[in-house]
Structures are given as structure tokens and as C-alpha cells.
């Protein structure tokens, strides 16, 4: 699987925002969503409206977000279990005893988790992995970390394809494991995959040295985001912050 699997190339204003602005905006928005008190149901509606406004600019079909958001299913299940397992006080809904606290907790996880996934999806859809690393670099993430990340993104596809080929080869030879104790061939494959990755790493390093590697990735010259683009980029986050603040104040 390549790292661009969620990326939807485009040229909307959100796509063209500098990546560091989008990263900061996404983190700030999700933090505000998480800080919103769970009883303020209206606030979550407003958060969703902000997101819908961003999506209108991005022009990615809504169904795309809905399908990708299925990644969150395990936590949705948890959210639906909580109302029945929570403690007193309890109330009756359609003849079923439901814990008030549990229902609120379930709602809390459902609303915040879903909004969080949707924000992450928006970031992933509008930002190329390469740009994301550049954004992290401009946000002063340690050089070593961004170098590892960019090399990882570059080679993830290669290593994953190698893993897929090895799996195909195993399946062709009749490998069809059903139980954990039959996983030995898979594990041996993982061992070989490590050796191949490591040896590829040594080769890549030598090739990089030959081309004058100095120990750090060159940072593309940055004109800087400028105050207006920063303001435009973090406006959705500012609105969520405003909603969150109002909700905190009124509840």
C-alpha cells in the first residue's frame, strides 16, 4: 500500500495551503473538538458545519469521507456498548434500561472520534505525503525524524510490494494458514523481509554517500506561509475554538 492512498490530488485553495498551516490547523481543530463538553450537543453540530464548509472548498465527494471513516468502526462499537454497561442512574429508552452516564460517554466517544477521523481524512486528502514531511520540517521537527519519515514514505511502497510478492509466492505453494501455530512461514517471511529492507538500507546509504549525502535532507527553499495564508488556514480551527469556548462557558 502506498502512502498516497488517501491523497486526492486537486488544486482547491485548501490543497494549495502550505502543509505546515494545515497540520497546525488540523491539530488545533481536533483539540478544540475534544475539549468541547459532551453535554453541548449543539456545539458538535456546529463543528460539523465548519467541516462541511471546508469540504465545500475542497470539493471531495461526501461519500468518500463516509467510506473512509469506516476505519473508526471498533470505537463506534465501544460507543454503543457503553450505554448498557454504564452504572446508575439508569433510565428507560423504548423499554430498555440505559445508563445515563454511559449513554453520554458513548455519545462523547462517537462524536469526538468521528469528527477527529473526518478532520484527519481531510488533511490526508488534501496533502501529499511529500508535502507533509516538508510541513513537519518547517515546523522545526528534528531533522533526523523528518529524514526517517521521508525515506520511509519513499520506500514503504517498495517494501510493501516486496511483502506482497512474498505472500503471493507462499500462497502459490499452497500456504493457507488458519491458526496461529501455522504462522511460521509468514514469520520466516517477515525475517527475510527485514534482511532485505536492512540490506537495501545499506545500499541506499552508500548510493546517497556517493551523491554527496551530508547527513540531512535538503529543505526546499520556503517563501514562508505569510500571515494572511496562516490566517486563512487556521480560520476553521479558530471557529471551532470559538464554538468550544462558548460551549465551555454556557455548560
Amino acid at each position: 500500500m502506498s502512502a498516497t492512498v488517501l491523497h486526492r490530488p486537486g488544486d482547491s485553495p485548501v490543497h494549495r495551503l502550505p502543509p505546515e498551516v494545515k497540520v497546525v490547523g488540523a491539530f488545533a481543530a481536533v483539540l478544540c473538538v475534544v475539549a468541547t463538553p459532551r453535554e453541548a450537543f449543539w456545539a458538535f453540530g456546529l463543528h460539523l458545519v465548519v467541516l462541511l464548509a471546508v469540504w465545500a472548498v475542497v470539493r471531495v465527494p461526501l461519500g468518500w469521507y463516509a467510506r473512509r471513516a469506516l476505519i473508526e468502526v471498533p470505537f463506534v462499537l465501544l460507543a454503543f456498548v457503553l450505554p448498557f454497561t454504564g452504572g446508575a442512574p439508569r433510565t428507560d429508552v423504548l423499554g430498555v434500561s440505559v445508563s445515563v452516564d454511559g449513554a453520554l460517554a458513548g455519545w462523547n466517544i462517537l462524536a469526538k472520534g468521528t469528527l477527529g477521523v473526518l478532520v484527519s481524512l481531510t488533511l490526508a486528502a488534501t496533502t501529499h505525503p511529500r508535502d507533509l514531511v516538508v510541513g513537519l520540517q518547517r515546523l522545526r521537527a528534528p531533522r533526523l525524524l523528518t529524514t526517517i519519515a521521508s525515506l520511509m514514505l519513499r520506500y514503504a511502497e517498495v517494501i510493501a510490494a516486496e511483502a506482497r510478492r512474498m505472500r503471493t509466492a507462499r500462497v502459490c505453494r499452497g500456504h493457507d494458514p488458519r491458526f496461529l501455530w501455522q504462522a511460521a512461514a509468514t514469520a520466516r517471511g517477515i525475517g527475510v523481509l527485514f534482511l532485505r529492507s536492512y540490506e537495501r538500507g545499506e545500499r541506499v546509504h552508500l548510493a546517497m554517500l556517493a551523491r554527496g549525502w551530508t547527513g540531512a535532507m535538503p529543505v526546499p527553499p520556503s517563501p514562508g506561509a505569510g500571515p494572511w495564508r496562516w490566517l486563512a488556514g487556521v480560520t476553521p480551527a479558530l471557529v471551532t475554538a470559538l464554538v468550544c469556548g462558548t460551549a465551555l462557558w454556557t455548560t
Binding site: 510493501a160 511483502a163 491458526f179 504462522a183
Partner: peptide
Amino acid sequence: DDRTAPLAGLVAAFVFAVQMLNFPVLP
């Protein structure tokens, strides 16, 4: 030592790829 980044990048790619490999636990 001096090989840090490229090797670590490939090891990270390996961890990433390994997380895609499912192994059976029960049917």
C-alpha cells in the same frame, strides 16, 4: 553511527509494511 537516517528510514518502512501483514489467530 553515520548510517542513522537511511537505515532507520528503511527499518521504519519495514515496520510499516509488517503492520500490513496479517497472520491468522483463529479461523
